[in-house]
């Protein structure tokens, strides 16, 4: 290993005395590592529905939907947006922005929509 790297001391050593089992033994090279359950799968396995609802858990402490009216802002400029372009579904503030909206490529429209999770993926 290069002197500069040794000097910087950034690499985690392979062998660590304080460990009862080393990482390379636990996760041998080349073997497909057991896939880690993602949060969604973890939560499914927790079976929260089997427990009383008054007991707080990861799912039921989540915030409720808002009571306030949904704020609509122009996707491009951030101004308040009274209009929606029926062709692209983008919200826009005024005629100038509308021109920009119509000049966007489908790719860009899609990106703008996916920012606010409104992009429809046709399969």
């Amino acid at each position: 290993m290069e002197a500069e790297l040794v000097e910087a001391d950034i690499v985690v050593p392979m062998q660590l005395r304080f460990k009862k089992i080393q990482s390379y033994e636990k996760y041998p090279k080349g073997q497909t590592r057991g896939r880690w359950k993602h949060l969604k799968q973890i939560l499914q396995a927790e079976n929260f529905q089997d427990y009383p609802p008054e007991e707080p858990n990861y799912i039921n402490i989540e915030s409720p939907p808002s009571n306030q009216p949904c704020k609509r802002i122009c996707d491009i400029t951030g101004y308040e947006a009274p209009y929606v372009d029926p062709r692209t579904n983008l919200r826009y503030a005024n005629a100038d922005v509308f021109k920009t909206v119509r000049s966007l490529s489908t790719e860009q429209v899609h990106q703008y929509l996916s920012i606010r999770n409104a992009a429809v993926v046709l399969k």
Binding site: S63, P64, P65, S66, K71, I73, I115, R116, N117
Partner: peptide
């Protein structure tokens, strides 16, 4: 306003009330 990025949950101020 989490709904600006498409998350339908209350924002920080409303969370206090909730």
């Amino acid at each position: 306003h989490p709904n600006l990025i498409g998350i339908d949950q209350v924002g920080l101020d409303e969370m206090g009330g909730a």
